[in-house]
Design a protein around this nucleic acid. Structure first.
Lengths: 352, 352
DNA sequence: CTGAAAGCGCTTACAG
DNA sequence: CTGAAAGCGCTTACAG
């Protein structure tokens, strides 16, 4: 017989110390009803005295209700960027509040690896839930892995809204429409647009808003003024150069995220242009850098950490003990407000 | 008897289908030796035919060797910042390579909460390992929780090196020394220094390098030229203003991270100073913004993602099947190389 | 190389 | 309100 001091105490040790059956111990540690106060006290005391901790494996073997893992995942598809980090910041804050832990997983949506990795994640960690950001929000493989495993998830800014899948986003199209109107109001007519990666709501709807504003102003989208910057600084440098070196350069440039707008400002500086007089430049997101620049950047403020926090709130409300393990009806589709932040990088069109 | 189609298949189902004992099935699925090829094939076939998956709870109940979780954590103490994100970027890449998942946890080291949260994390997720960044690297509570749970960890840029605890860092002091020398070579003598948060190696050793370079040049540290910017942009704005509005303003400012240097540049612009002629400004880290600025920032390039990746490599090498569950001897203390990146924000001292 | 039996630490289902 | 017994799906230790 092993030394009782070295062995981890079991429910049997607790029962014999408290002088009750193991079933009673089980009832107490699981907070079941129908236990007398006396029993409860004696068991509680024995538990603390022995430092007893229930063996989760043994529990998991018999329990019908699978034990909650208290782990949720943020699944994202694009390596870097402040966007990802800010979503995590907001989500993390809610995780802490609700007592969950956050696992972050970058899934390469173009690789055959996705399915294996997603499945491994779900199985190994027994995920209680997930938050998806672009472009995984619309990735059929990832969604079906989660669906099959019964893992509830919230999509942040999906391309396609699906009625029964909760989502959180801003009104991308309207924001881009308003920003374009701001430029039009300043008298600009030759307004270039720099797109991000395809398959992102941020690219698709922002471009739509831009196009609609032009159209309503009686202007046409000039595809010669549309470039693809992949959301990234370095990819945007040549785009900005092409635009600004045209015979008739645009008088305003709308980059559909701030990182790309920063690249445009840099190129303009290098070319010796005076900002914002020679060219108005606007971005989208309001990353911290935008305010730090000179001139500081006119942009759309998207409450990114709040998007993450809101996604967490939806998830944790459903996962709470009171939750019905169903999404509420109607399924939530939150649209958070954005702001048009006017700063130093835009100015009225200079008269020729 | 339940419908065999709805029930998850067990080792018994596999055994009876394959016509062997459950023990043989156990041997095959655990890749033990001493099983004939014939048996092995029959069992394998039955496993795939039934879609059998071992029940981890049942396994965990008997197994002596605790099952690996394939989860490691990045524990950090300060909310935001690109540094944290870049560490994760590098670490994540190694996680993927070695087949691990990454949980990120922000622990408020000033709250009594830390211990409870750290313990919950270790227990719930059965962490296989952890990577710590400042200021948790030197937090006794967190370290002891990990030690007691037997979770191996790697510290990134700890304040105090401990021989038996692996670490990864750059030579902060030498880098700051070199950067200060760069300013001295340009003829600067009134060089201000902006510190970050206390308890960070980044604050302590960078200041030491600065002080040593001054001393060797026969100069003294003027505490009137030392400010505390908490590593953050907004906290640094008033510091920069105080410095630049002095009767005898510094001719150069060394901010001990880039975010603070960016704030200095912003304030200088707002005051109408010409950069770098009126004031040379340097930072530390080489965040992406530094290159995007105008003028772009002279700084120390710290390979942050590589620090994260290296921490991961140390951890995963120890966790690998071949690992001895001990750190190698001698315990690794990696010092990665840094670069002094000269850009547009520094210039020789203008002769009065 | 293979198998029959015991038992891990709990929860379930049933009886009182 | 309490308990005695069975059994979850595996691995361990032992026997052949």
């Amino acid at each position: 017989m092993p030394d009782p001091i070295t062995r981890k105490p079991t429910i049997i040790d607790v029962a014999s110390l408290a002088g009750v059956s193991i079933k009673t111990v089980s009832r107490v540690i699981n907070n079941e009803r129908h236990v007398s106060v006396d029993m409860r006290t004696r068991v509680r005391q024995a538990v603390t005295e022995l430092g007893f901790e229930a063996n989760e494996s043994a529990r998991g073997m018999r329990s019908l209700a699978p034990e909650k893992s208290y782990v949720v995942a943020h699944l994202y598809g694009d390596a870097g960027g402040l966007y990802t980090h800010d979503i995590q910041l907001g989500l993390m804050e809610r995780c802490r509040y609700f007592g969950y832990h956050l696992v972050v997983e970058e899934l390469d949506y173009q690789s055959p690896d996705v399915e294996r990795r997603a499945k491994d994640l779900v199985k190994r960690l027994k995920l209680d839930g997930a938050v998806l950001t672009a472009p995984l929000t619309d990735n059929e493989i990832v969604l079906s892995v989660l669906d099959e495993a019964g893992v509830p998830y919230v999509r942040v800014s999906p391309v396609t809204e699906v009625p029964h899948l909760p989502s959180v986003r801003i009104d991308e199209k309207r924001a881009a429409y308003q920003m374009t109107q701001h430029l039009l109001t300043y008298g600009h007519k030759r307004i270039a647009f720099i797109r991000g990666l395809p398959n992102h709501a941020a690219t698709i709807y922002r471009f739509e808003g831009y196009a609609q504003a032009l159209k309503e102003a009686g202007l046409e989208v000039d595809l010669g003024l549309v470039e693809d910057g992949e959301f990234r600084y370095f990819a945007t440098i040549p785009c900005a150069r092409r635009l600004l070196e045209r015979d008739e350069p645009p008088t305003a440039i709308f980059a559909c995220n701030d990182e790309m707008a920063v690249a445009v400002i840099k190129v303009a500086h290098e070319m010796g242009l005076t900002l914002p007089d020679d060219c108005s430049i606007v971005g989208f997101d309001d990353i911290p850098t935008s305010e730090m620049l000179w001139p500081s950047l006119t942009t759309v403020r998207q409450p990114v950490p709040r998007l993450g926090a809101m996604a967490g709130d939806l998830l944790f409300t459903r996962l709470s003990p009171l939750g019905t393990s169903e999404w509420p009806t109607p399924v939530p589709h939150q649209v958070l407000p954005h702001d048009i932040v006017l700063r130093g990088s835009t100015a009225p069109l200079r008269q020729p």
